[in-house]
Design a protein around this nucleic acid. Sequence first.
DNA 1: TGTTTTTGGGACATCGATGTCCCATAATGA
DNA 2: TCATTATGGGACATCGATGTCCCAAAAACA
Lengths: 215, 215
Amino acid sequence: MSATRQPPSRTPVSGTPEAGEPGERKPEVPETGVRGRTRRAILAAAASALARDRGATLADIAEAAQVGRSTLHRYFPDRHDLLNATIVDSFRVVEQSIAAAAVDQGPPREAMRRLITAMVDVGDRLAFLFGDPRVLEENSACFEPDASVPTALSLIERGQAEGVFDPQVSAEWIQEMLYAITYTGWEAAERGLLPRHGVTSTVIRTFENGLAIRP
Amino acid sequence: MSATRQPPSRTPVSGTPEAGEPGERKPEVPETGVRGRTRRAILAAAASALARDRGATLADIAEAAQVGRSTLHRYFPDRHDLLNATIVDSFRVVEQSIAAAAVDQGPPREAMRRLITAMVDVGDRLAFLFGDPRVLEENSACFEPDASVPTALSLIERGQAEGVFDPQVSAEWIQEMLYAITYTGWEAAERGLLPRHGVTSTVIRTFENGLAIRP
DNA sequence: TGTTTTTGGGACATCGATGTCCCATAATGA
DNA sequence: TCATTATGGGACATCGATGTCCCAAAAACA
């Protein structure tokens, strides 16, 4: 059987028990170490490259991932697949980072500071996801925001209820601004306008106080 | 001379005294009424279309401008020309709107409110200019921000000096946030998340107070 | 009304990005 | 060490966007 030089088809060897399970969560098995690493490298590079230039070419992405273009195609047959996988992956990374902030615990103000810190840490993923509204709209298709993880929105609503966050504007607006401020901070650092270590505190300060001094 | 069906070459008729003058300011003469109108329509459509989808095709833009693709090419030989002209034009529109706010007059807080109002009014132009950092970096080339017009930055610095705007962060950061908040407001309206008439007040409120309540 | 200008659209050639296939080589692991 | 797997890169075909040219029709103008 000359099964050689076959695309990394569905893991012909080594058990993949999750193959057809009911729980569709995590269809991406870590695969074998090498493949998993390559795959992650590609996804990270894609998010990063696309965050900086949404018109990035597949060749650009492959180069950023230090991978041949054919290898990239081997993992993600076409651009749409790659984009979709990158969205899902970035979503997962961001979700994980947010989950680690445990925003459902402690006073909202403190929780929000942890959340912002977590978000700044995954700034490039956020920039990719959030930079182009279309990306999410068109490809979102397959991924639902794990309901068990407390969301930013839930924190915002809790904070509003406790009178810590502005109740005069909608929670959605606060969420939008949360992303926008974080994104702006990330981009400012990217452009050297803000030192990396100053991003978090500046973002938090702006979020809490705005840019004017109370009269 | 079959000078017919010639591209709108350099206005063969009607004097264009600005042709080779030293002051390169305003090389775009209003031209004849028709051409000027078509040109403006194309530029406006381009800014609008590109603001919503930076990958917009020339055909998309032509359609948005209700103009044939060949007409578009007649006015702007290639994509780069169009992009450049759109940037210059949008810059002028924004600059004009900002100038009308007379931000060098009155108390900074009031001036800033006028400025924000003016900026929201030209939201799509701002979204185009500001939506993609690359657009400005790569094509800026030819246009300098008229020094006679008071800039947003000058207002910010004045406000900081008077202790009205946060002096703890850089004026550049405040300016970035000013754009970011305005852009977010525009986009929120675009997505129906915020009513059109509520954008200005929400943006102002967020700018001044941030999103948390003072403890 | 007659002339000139401007437009819309079709027909093409070109160019870059994409996707596919194949093979030699490097990396992995038994 | 040897077999298997993963990779990189070349060669192609394809496709969509772009840019060019041309002509007939519509619009503007005198």
